[in-house]
Design a protein around this nucleic acid. Sequence first.
DNA 1: TATAAATTGATTGACATCTAACAATTTGTT
DNA 2: AACAAATTGTTAGATGTCAATCAATTTATA
Lengths: 157, 157
Amino acid sequence: MSINRELELERPIQDLRHETLLNIVRTVSVLSIKGEMFFRRYGLTEAQFNVLFALKYKKKKWTQSDLGKRLVVTRASITSILDRLESKGLVIRNIVEGNRRIRHIELTPEGLNLVQKVEPIYRRNIHKLLSCFSDKECLEIIKYMETIRERAMTIPY
Amino acid sequence: MSINRELELERPIQDLRHETLLNIVRTVSVLSIKGEMFFRRYGLTEAQFNVLFALKYKKKKWTQSDLGKRLVVTRASITSILDRLESKGLVIRNIVEGNRRIRHIELTPEGLNLVQKVEPIYRRNIHKLLSCFSDKECLEIIKYMETIRERAMTIPY
DNA sequence: TATAAATTGATTGACATCTAACAATTTGTT
DNA sequence: AACAAATTGTTAGATGTCAATCAATTTATA
């Protein structure tokens, strides 16, 4: 349904670019609600899953700062997410020899186990959701999003 | 930059549809950070602006429930946003004759004033951000987003 | 009409997020 | 080597968000 109909506005939004932005943001709102519902079944939030997922696929050892940069959240947020994941025994903050300031974050076996269980189901849902698009269309969406991100990060707001 | 490079993953994500989803979500993350920075200049959060904006363009009188439905947030969230907007004197909860359960939410003159001041500047920023796309491309993005939203709302997760 | 069901707004507790500040530590510069 | 600057993780306080629950009220049904 169109944004204008969903919002039931008197004067529909006449601004195509504003409408474009609203559409993207609103879509993520809807996806996020669905995502939270899904992850809750496994005792996780979306943010917590994102951390577990990143840790599973990471390259080198990652600090909390590294995690924050990759996931585009502040160090403070990472601290609070890790507190919860650690208390559930899903991750561990390892002391780093030679640098007493940082911690290397790793999945515990339980953490790895959980991601490995949830990820394929999550992925199936994503496939169901986006099965209507061809590979070419997916690439096109990705291109659009990369362009917007690139511009958002460089253009002064 | 590509999601795989941004995340610096060992094994890049091989799943085109997952990558598509990550791209959309991540784009909104970035936009949201920029948006919050922008609205803070006017003493607002993005959620607060969204409420003011919706109230400016609404058709009939809206209750808090109405607002929640349009903005895709729960009644509890609306309550807390309105508490803050009301304490700043930007909106008012009007008693409704004939139905003592509901409230009609309206902009105060100050609220209207503020939206009218912020909106055109916000809109200019959006134009700057999306000026690289033709109208046709915008329509294409909108179409993609509407399709995803439609499917997300109907497909069981 | 009387009772059951649904709706509305508020509240509570949990979580994610931000900014700002802080202490500890590391890195860079003179 | 000594001092200044930057980085790291944490904390506190603010805000938004949700689910669950509640009381008040309205609507629907028996």
